[in-house]
């Protein structure tokens, strides 16, 4: 497989998956239960993504490093009803400072 074939196949498959979600007939997910399931899907995927981004390290092993400290600060700021930008910047600052101090 040449690099161009690899690149274009990956692009085509990615777009086909994205578009497929838009082409599913709305009727498939009518009804309160299915509707709620579809509404909860992004909640499940994004929650899992945050968890993986925060505590999963090389080889899929769980590690506690600057990322978990930053997310803890983000949740603290959220509980204090801080502004969105303050939460995001606060987490970045904590991670950046901890890494500058040498904690992974």
């Amino acid at each position: 497989m040449t690099p161009w074939v690899t690149v274009l196949l990956a692009c085509a498959a990615a777009y086909a998956l994205k578009l497929a979600g838009y082409l599913v007939p709305a009727g498939w997910f009518d009804g309160p239960r299915r509707s709620r399931m579809i509404a909860l899907l992004p909640v499940a995927l994004l929650s899992a993504l945050v968890a993986v981004q925060t505590v999963v390290g090389d080889g899929g092993l769980l590690v506690l490093d600057a990322r978990i400290a930053a997310l803890a600060v983000a949740f603290l700021l959220l509980a204090l009803r801080a502004n969105f930008l303050v939460v995001v910047a606060g987490a970045a600052l904590v991670a950046g400072v901890l890494r500058a101090l040498g904690w992974s």
Binding site: R67, A70, F75, F84, V87, V88, G90
Partner: peptide, 11 residues
Amino acid sequence: GLDAAAAAAFA
């Protein structure tokens, strides 16, 4: 800390 910023934004 941009990786932490992304996770915090999703949260």
